[in-house]
Amino acid sequence: MRRVPPVGPKAPAHVHTSACSPWHPFPRLERAGYVRRTADPADRRKVVVEAVPDALAGVESAVGPARKRIGEVLAGYTPDQQDLLFDYFSRAAPAFREATEEIRASTQERKGGR
């Protein structure tokens, strides 16, 4: 079972919500059966969110065709080219998230901080 870092003040920022937002994803994921909350064995005040192992079978059936097609695309590249692609995407994704945050912040500033 894969363990996700404890839910805490930084988790909502990572998923772009506030801790009290009705759109906070953890309760919805828990109700859907994808994750469960357990007490952190090292610190009972913390909560650890764990993926429910068999819950992703339904997700795989939904996204399986897309994964297959992407696999076919990647198979057309050499291992070195694949390494380059994976390196690019591992760097581009965080850069895109940072740029999104900058855009969000500047939009809020233009709206007067609302």
Results as ranks from 00 to 15, higher is better:
1 M>I: 03
2 R>H: 10
2 R>D: 12
3 R>Q: 09
4 V>L: 14
5 P>I: 05
6 P>Y: 11
6 P>D: 09
7 V>Y: 05
7 V>M: 11
8 G>I: 02
9 P>L: 07
10 K>P: 04
11 A>I: 04
11 A>Y: 12
14 H>R: 02
14 H>T: 03
15 V>W: 12
19 A>E: 09
20 C>L: 06
21 S>C: 05
21 S>A: 07
24 H>S: 09
24 H>Y: 11
26 F>C: 09
26 F>G: 01
27 P>F: 14
27 P>Q: 02
28 R>P: 08
28 R>N: 09
29 L>Y: 05
31 R>V: 05
31 R>Y: 10
32 A>W: 13
33 G>Q: 11
37 R>A: 09
42 A>T: 06
42 A>N: 15
43 D>H: 04
43 D>R: 02
45 R>F: 10
46 K>E: 15
50 E>W: 10
52 V>L: 07
52 V>C: 15
53 P>Q: 08
55 A>P: 02
55 A>G: 12
59 V>R: 00
59 V>F: 02
62 A>L: 11
62 A>R: 00
66 A>V: 01
67 R>Y: 08
68 K>L: 06
70 I>Y: 06
70 I>S: 03
71 G>L: 01
72 E>S: 07
72 E>L: 13
72 E>N: 04
74 L>D: 04
75 A>W: 08
77 Y>I: 01
78 T>Y: 14
79 P>L: 08
79 P>T: 01
80 D>K: 04
80 D>W: 10
80 D>A: 13
81 Q>L: 10
81 Q>R: 08
83 D>E: 15
84 L>K: 04
85 L>P: 04
86 F>W: 06
88 Y>A: 08
89 F>A: 04
89 F>E: 05
92 A>S: 08
92 A>V: 10
94 P>L: 01
95 A>S: 15
96 F>Y: 12
100 T>D: 15
101 E>A: 10
103 I>K: 05
104 R>T: 03
106 S>W: 10
111 K>F: 13
112 G>R: 04
112 G>H: 07
112 G>Q: 09
113 G>Y: 07
